[in-house]
Design a protein around this nucleic acid. Structure first.
Lengths: 362, 362
DNA sequence: AGCGTTCACGGGATCGCTCCCAGAAAGGGG
DNA sequence: CCCCTTTCTGGGAGCGATCCCGTGAACGCT
């Protein structure tokens, strides 16, 4: 393999200086059209690609973005990553992955992120479902490190993107109401999570808007996972026939799977005896029996919006350095602090609706 | 935020030179015990973390590992990534993500990888299910770039790790035979994939070992996805009762889902009328109805083995540079070119076996 | 013609590290 | 006691970019 070409080689071949080549590479305006064309041609011919490493050292800024995610969230990251990389591939930034498990977190949580940043490798951070880490990330953000969270669990003061859980839940319950149901149960998630709260609020609002008084007997509390859905469902099935629900909105698909199992054991037919709707649109949901009607989270779009937001922060940061005090800067479009994306209702068989279509949540 | 400390600051504080600090950081032997301890203490006190960027530029070697994966494989990468990061977190290496979609591939396939390498960012490459990229990766590997493939689709001349598909298929079919089945159908994948071939061979061998003559009527060809499983199943159900299969081994879980749907439509009860086994252990398989017996791929371990192999290659490369001609090097353990990991059979309800246990494939 | 501006471009200094050679200090053998 | 090793350490020379000051040419204006 021939020795790699450096900027110096390109400069020599194009008959210009390093500085000019650098200007061409970084798309700076003050280069003559012809010169630029010539340099670009040489770059093309030589297959030259500037060293990110050297550029990072010299420029003090890097072209790497750190993606932080707890390992256990990996299974649900596929779509998010797709969205992120689709945008990122059009830029000169690259993605660096940082994962950690629960041990790491409990042991020396602060260290992990700090060391990560201390390497000066990344220009910004994209944190997925950071959980316990979010406080620290917020702190970093306040210190000027560009950070964007993809989260659905807490109110943040950092830039973040999330799905509109309340509207999604509203649409799901409204759908059940339109199908004629009046006694609609809800299995909510743990109260310490914001999603649980939001989805519950959506449920309540949908009922109220249809003049249905919420019934405390029909509201159970689970922990997001199948077993809790199972036991909550059994409790509901044990209610006397006149108050037993005819429909159920589980606040996660996982819990809905538990409901499905309980229903099968008790001979409760879904959707005939019980219309069921979940939330999340996990992969298995299309394949369970019957296929689960659920609220789809726009993961792909969330990934896209998150990285766009971060890229915007990065761009602003760069400008600040160069055009400090530039009046144009002030009029620059404001970068949104939070982006909430609409969910959509995926209608399958478990709710008893005949057709299988997708309905926008708002 | 205080200005970041550099190696120079540490040197000054410890009363030594940059060179010595560098030696300590890189764990070189030629440093006095006391000096080393002193330097380490200062590093600790200052929370100093060396700049990977500068080290990369100066040393010519980097501490980044590129992970290459086509976007559409993301959903199945969760466990692999877990395995990789678990090992990687103990080293000073970081993971950089490179994904690309089909367009990228068909348009300028060569460019992508070349540009990737040309940035000189990564010390080695870990490629997941590279598909069309594998030729090029092999080439790179021959040019001296450390490359490890995680693949199940082709015979490679590069280092790679994969699951033992043939043994997995053998175990699956053997399981069905032990349950008393003699007429066992198989839906294989597209012939251009090595997995299809291997799983098919495993199927045939299991039949032969049980003195069952394979019946061409019972062997269908699908394309890995649910719809093809559906149509293949219908074709099998249309066979006259005396030659109709009592069991079916689908070479992917996805196709098994299609089989499940066909069975439901035709009133064929699984597992009573048809015992079903899939392959891959996709996430939905535990939740389909009935839960699918399948062959589990050791993704977590594959990730671990792959990264260990790459790390070993990297270490060897580094040694080569330093101890050129060292006799120890010659007698050094030869690094295995390929690693094949055992699969395991996950017994659930769809095969008709009472208990739900996991059986090692070999 | 003289002067100030703008436009392109050159090249020295620099980023934070590793490499490596040279030299000091400490022992070992004749 | 001198010389030769061995063990440690110091510091100059890069690595490949960016930054930025400085310069020469071309142009417009008085």
């Amino acid at each position: 393999m021939a020795k790699k070409a450096t900027i110096e080689d390109i400069a020599r071949l194009a008959g210009v200086s390093r500085g000019t080549v650098s200007r061409v590479i970084n798309q700076r305006p003050d280069v003559d059209r012809e010169t630029r064309a010539r340099v670009l041609r040489v770059i093309e011919e030589q297959g030259y690609v500037p060293s990110l490493t050297a550029a990072g050292l010299a420029g003090g800024r890097n072209r790497l973005i750190g993606m932080v995610a707890p390992v256990f969230t990996w299974p649900i990251l596929g779509e998010l990553v797709r969205g992120i990389t689709e945008i990122l591939n059009r830029t000169s930034y690259e993605l660096v992955l940082y994962t950690f498990n629960d041990e790491d977190l409990t042991r020396n949580r602060r260290d992990i992120i700090n060391r990560l940043l201390a390497t000066q490798l990344t220009a910004g951070l994209l944190a997925m479902y950071p959980g316990q880490l979010s406080d620290q990330l917020t702190e970093l953000s306040q210190q000027g490190v560009p950070v964007v969270l993809v989260d659905d669990q807490r109110e943040q003061t950092t830039h973040w993107v999330r799905a509109d859980d309340a509207a999604g839940a509203y649409a799901a319950v409204q759908h059940l109401i339109k199908l004629g149901h009046r006694r609609i149960a809800h299995i909510q998630g743990p109260s310490e999570y914001l999603v649980s709260h939001d989805r519950h609020q959506g449920y309540l609002r949908a009922l109220r808007d249809a003049n249905i008084t919420p019934d405390a007997d029909l509201i159970q509390q689970g922990d997001f996972l199948p077993p809790s859905g199972y036991s909550c469902a059994l409790r509901l099935f044990d209610l006397s026939p006149e108050i037993r629900p005819t429909a159920l909105f589980a606040s996660t698909d996982q819990m809905a799977y538990g409901v499905l199992r309980a229903a099968e054991e008790r001979g409760v037919s879904v959707p005939r005896d019980l219309a069921l709707v979940g939330f999340d649109d996990d992969a298995p949901s299309a394949h369970v029996h019957p296929p689960l009607t659920t609220v789809h989270q726009p993961s792909f779009e969330m990934g896209q919006e998150a990285i766009k937001l971060l890229l915007a922060l990065l761009a602003r940061q760069r400008d600040d350095g160069l055009d400090f005090g530039n009046p144009l800067n002030g009029s620059q479009t404001e970068i949104p602090l939070r982006i909430v994306l609409p969910t959509s209702l995926v209608v399958r068989a478990s709710c008893g609706a005949a057709n299988s279509i997708t309905i926008q949540a708002n």
